[in-house]
Design a binder for these strands. Structure first.
Lengths: 224, 224
DNA sequence: CTCCCCCGGATTGTCTGACAATCTTGTATG
DNA sequence: CATACAAGATTGTCAGACAATCCGGGGGAG
């Protein structure tokens, strides 16, 4: 996977931001942890120029917070943040679900969702959280992309990714996986039926439920 | 410690991105125009480092589009973009209006809206488009901020700003100013009454109407 | 005359090294 | 025990350089 050295195509562009983002998404860095430029230059064998560029990107995306003259750190969310994020997610992803239902005529979408659903069934039956969470992400991703709106996609992504870590905690520490799975079923069912209104309602219900589960997490996981 | 030291006007730390953004918002640059780094370094008397940083920021915000190895240019919107943007704006700003209505208890908000409204009345009566548009912007801004959600604010801003130029065309070339003004009245009326549902509906109606007006603009103003 | 290839200029992507500005922290001082 | 100061760490910005890439145009082949 790493640097395709000689034979294969040049290492071309592996934007540093992508690597960092991937590590952040999987929780490799602790929230609140400082991201010192000098450390990153060594860790990734890149110049400070590129490290700073990557950090700016991630800050713009909300993964990282940047304080003037004080550097960057992995974003920590307060309960207030979480509430505001979910409030917005409800309308944004609600719209996405509605649009996906209206666009279910597209075979690509239909098959994609079907395949995804099969995998999720597997993971849910075995209660395999580590496998379910990425599938969950991919499902929401697929729905967000269904409409082909880069704006919808960008807005939704910015809201979804920062709370991935908390979502992981939720699925880990409670029997919420099955509940979440049932709600996904409801959403997909409405979408497959081409029922936009129902899909939106189901999605909003799902997100509100997800919010409540996150809200119930212990204080240590939040900022402030 | 408001102003600079002695002879104000000294190079204070005004982020380059802010200057550029302001110029873009007022349409000083033509859409599609290339933004060559070397030109900007001279124009703003800044190093390429800072110019590139600013461009990245603006690209992340959607004001500017950046093509690898081909530089940056002022973003041009296609009709497709406009449709997608308005679709999202409807739910995002609809939420903002609803929240503003629920938070109308705050005197700051109430007075702020009142003062704004008075100014807008003036501008509308005289048909002064150049004065109305900024007020329109400030009104939407105020509503978006009412809830104090940075996420809502960021999402809405990213959607609103790219179409400012088109909106200006709309208000200029048609008698739509009065129509828009009436719709603003409807929105504010619902908000002042603390009627969240009504505020959201009025806002969505307003945006749909605005979209139709933009859509009717001639092809030359769109990309592709 | 038209098409295609290649060249040089223009521009971007990245690196290096440097230095000032600013924040942080440990320590001496009252 | 609070405070001020000095040293160290880190970020912000700069200039200059060079490779990579793109763009437009000139020449040559057909």
């Amino acid at each position: 996977m790493t640097a395709g050295s000689k034979a294969d195509g040049a290492p071309k562009r592996v934007p540093l931001a992508d690597q960092l983002r991937a590590e952040l998404a999987t929780g490799r860095f602790a929230p609140g942890q400082r991201l010192v430029e000098a450390d990153l230059t060594e860790r990734f064998q890149a110049s400070r120029t590129r490290v700073r560029e990557a950090l700016q990107h991630l800050a713009a995306e909300g993964y990282v917070e940047h304080l003037p003259n004080r550097g960057s750190r992995v974003r920590r969310l307060s309960r207030r943040d979480v509430r505001q994020i979910y409030e917005l997610r409800e309308v944004v992803e609600g719209l996405a679900a509605r649009r996906a239902a209206l666009g279910i005529g597209d075979p690509d979408l239909r098959h994609g969702l079907h395949a995804l659903w099969a995998e999720m069934e597997m993971a849910a039956r075995t209660g395999d959280v580590a496998r379910y969470l990425p599938l969950n992400t991919r499902l929401h991703d697929r729905l967000i992309r269904a409409d082909g709106s880069v704006y919808l996609q960008a807005a939704a992504e910015r809201l979804r990714v920062p709370i991935l870590r908390l979502q992981f905690e939720v699925l880990m520490t409670t029997p919420n996986l099955q509940l979440s799975h049932d709600q996904h079923a409801e959403i997909l069912s409405a979408i497959e039926a081409g029922h936009g209104e129902g899909a939106e309602i189901a999605m909003r219900k799902h997100l509100r439920s997800s919010f409540e589960a996150v809200w119930a997490l212990p204080d240590e996981l939040f900022d402030r």
